[in-house]
Structures are given as structure tokens and as C-alpha cells.
């Protein structure tokens, strides 16, 4: 119902409602756009894609349905904008070891990707409901109360599960030496 009121206000040209939606969905759209744009996208590019998604929502506000969450609409829009941006970017010729804007070079990037792939695999291998809780809260940027409610957990239990899950992930990723144990990749 809260989002119904927001959509209703958005359709009534209320920019405060748009501001509220920006607060609510920026992190989620960041995750969606980043996954589409590839590892370590430039901040400026990411912010432009996310902002454009909200602008698109504003421009399409008359067509929005009040009883539907704008979340999936925003996700599809952000993903499409991210792909458009990738297609329109000029091809690189030679990638220096360290990019001018401080982003990691290819070797470091490959290592990061391997770590994050390992993290994702470990989360996928968790038992339920921890798996769904981690995917919803971290990967989909879902509010914890919503993720907990969806899984039939009370908030306190959900927090405990997240804390224990993080501890297990840390142990699994660092092994005994305290250093990240990056799995070899092809």
C-alpha cells in the first residue's frame, strides 16, 4: 500500500514521490546495472545509467499501474540502459595495467571476479532459508523486513542467520591461513 501511495503521487506529478523511490531503489538498481555492465564499471557510467532509469520512470509515470511495484519495471529499464551504454562505448585498444580512474587493471580484475564468483557459489550452496535470505538481502538489495517476511522469519532470526552465514562465508573463503583462497580458474 505504501508503494501504491507513491505511484499515485508520482502520477500526480509529485516529485517528492520520485525522490522517495530514488532513496528506495538506488542500491538495487546499482546492483542490476553493474551486473549488466560488467565488473568494475566506472562510477560516472553507473550513476548515469541509474539516474536515467529513474528519469525514464518519471517520463512514463502516466502509464504506471498503481497496484504494481515499480521495482521490476526499474530493473528492466536499468538493465536495458546498461546494455545500450555498453554497445555505444568505444572499443578499447590496449588496456593499461592500471586504468586512469583508479579502477583495477585486467589482472587484478580477474582476481576480483574469481573471488566474487566463489562468494556467489558459496551463497548458492547454502541451505534454505539462508540461501534465499542472502540472495534476497545482499544480491537483490531487498529490505530485510521484506526478505524475512517472505521467508517466514522474524526479523531477529533473520539478523542472526545473516550474522552466522557471514561467519561461515568468511571461514570458507579464507580457509585456515586467513588469506583468501582463490580457486584456480581456467
Amino acid at each position: 500500500m505504501d508503494e501504491q501511495a507513491l505511484i499515485r503521487r508520482l502520477k500526480a506529478d509529485d516529485r517528492q514521490a520520485l525522490a522517495e523511490l530514488i532513496d528506495r531503489y538506488t542500491h538495487y538498481l546499482t546492483a542490476v546495472a553493474a551486473r549488466a555492465m560488467g565488473p568494475c564499471p566506472a562510477r560516472e557510467d553507473l550513476e548515469e545509467v541509474v539516474s536515467d532509469a529513474f528519469l525514464a520512470l518519471w517520463r512514463a509515470r502516466a502509464q504506471l499501474e498503481e497496484d504494481r511495484s515499480p521495482r521490476p519495471w526499474l530493473a528492466v529499464t536499468a538493465r536495458n540502459l546498461a546494455y545500450d551504454r555498453l554497445r555505444s562505448s568505444r572499443p578499447t585498444q590496449e588496456i593499461p595495467p592500471q586504468l586512469p580512474d583508479g579502477r583495477p587493471g585486467p589482472e587484478e580484475l580477474a582476481q576480483r571476479q574469481a573471488l566474487h564468483s566463489q562468494l556467489r557459489r558459496l551463497v548458492e550452496e547454502m541451505e534454505e532459508p539462508d540461501r534465499s535470505l542472502f540472495l534476497g538481502y545482499y544480491y537483490e538489495e531487498e529490505p530485510l523486513y521484506r526478505a524475512a517476511s517472505r521467508l517466514g522469519l522474524n526479523l531477529s532470526t533473520a539478523k542472526t542467520r545473516l550474522a552466522r552465514g557471514r561467519k561461515r562465508l568468511r571461514q570458507a573463503m579464507t580457509g585456515k591461513g586467513g588469506e583468501f583462497d582463490v580457486e584456480p580458474h581456467a
Partner: peptide, 16 residues
């Protein structure tokens, strides 16, 4: 988890 980030964190205020 002391992992390096895979993408930057955006500030909703900046987006707004």
C-alpha cells in the same frame, strides 16, 4: 568479508 568491491557504491542523494 574484506573483499574488494566489484562495483562502486552510489549515493542516493547524488542520484537524486
Amino acid at each position: 568479508l574484506d573483499l574488494p568491491p566489484l562495483y562502486p557504491q552510489l549515493d542516493p542523494e547524488s542520484v537524486r
